[in-house]
């Protein structure tokens, strides 16, 4: 019983960390959507008009998903969206690297400006791992039995 409580506590900590990271990342980008539009444009995948639209929308999606994890409301939906967002971002980052683009990821605003490719990818994979871990835990009913 005590072991289950400890596991639940640890899972909750991971919830808060992942949720907090996405609220922070979303808030930084929401403060400067024009810069974020340029960051998306650097990947040279989408037309500029879509880059702008995403720059206004994605930060808020990250914020709402982060809050969903922190408050444990719409939890599974938040986790699923975050898993999808990170997957797309990892693919886009690798594709940009393969095409030799000099990208600024912009994932954490100014703080991430000078991160190299390995740092971007490393952080994304860690976050992806944590989100998958929470999804798995949710599936096993460790953390989300009442959600």
């Amino acid at each position: 019983m005590a072991q289950v409580a400890t596991v639940k506590f640890l899972w909750r900590i991971v919830d808060l960390i992942v949720g907090g990271v996405f609220v922070y990342a979303g808030a930084i980008k929401a403060l400067d959507p024009v810069q974020f539009a340029h960051d998306i444009d650097n990947y040279k995948i989408l037309p500029w008009a879509i880059d702008v639209g995403l720059a206004f929308y994605l930060p808020w999606l990250e914020i709402f998903c982060g809050i969903a994890l922190i408050l444990r409301r719409l939890y599974l939906g938040g986790l699923s969206i975050l898993a999808a967002l990170i997957s797309v971002f990892v693919i886009a980052t690798v594709a940009a690297k393969v095409r030799g683009l000099d990208i600024t990821c912009g994932c954490f605003g100014h703080a991430s400006k000078n991160w190299n490719f390995s740092t971007h990818l490393g952080l994304d994979l860690v976050l992806f791992g944590l989100v998958m871990f929470l999804l798995f835990a949710c599936g096993r009913n460790f953390t989300a039995s009442q959600r």
Binding site: P33, V52, F56, W60, A68, Y75, L76, G77, G78, I81
Partner: peptide, 27 residues
């Protein structure tokens, strides 16, 4: 749940797009 979050995020996104309409070109 995912659809609710996707829909919710549109509201501030649209508001911000209106607020920034003079600061960024969509073209």
């Amino acid at each position: 749940q995912a659809l609710i979050l996707v829909a919710l995020a549109f509201l501030p996104g649209i508001g911000q797009a209106i607020y920034f309409r003079d600061k960024v070109s969509w073209q």
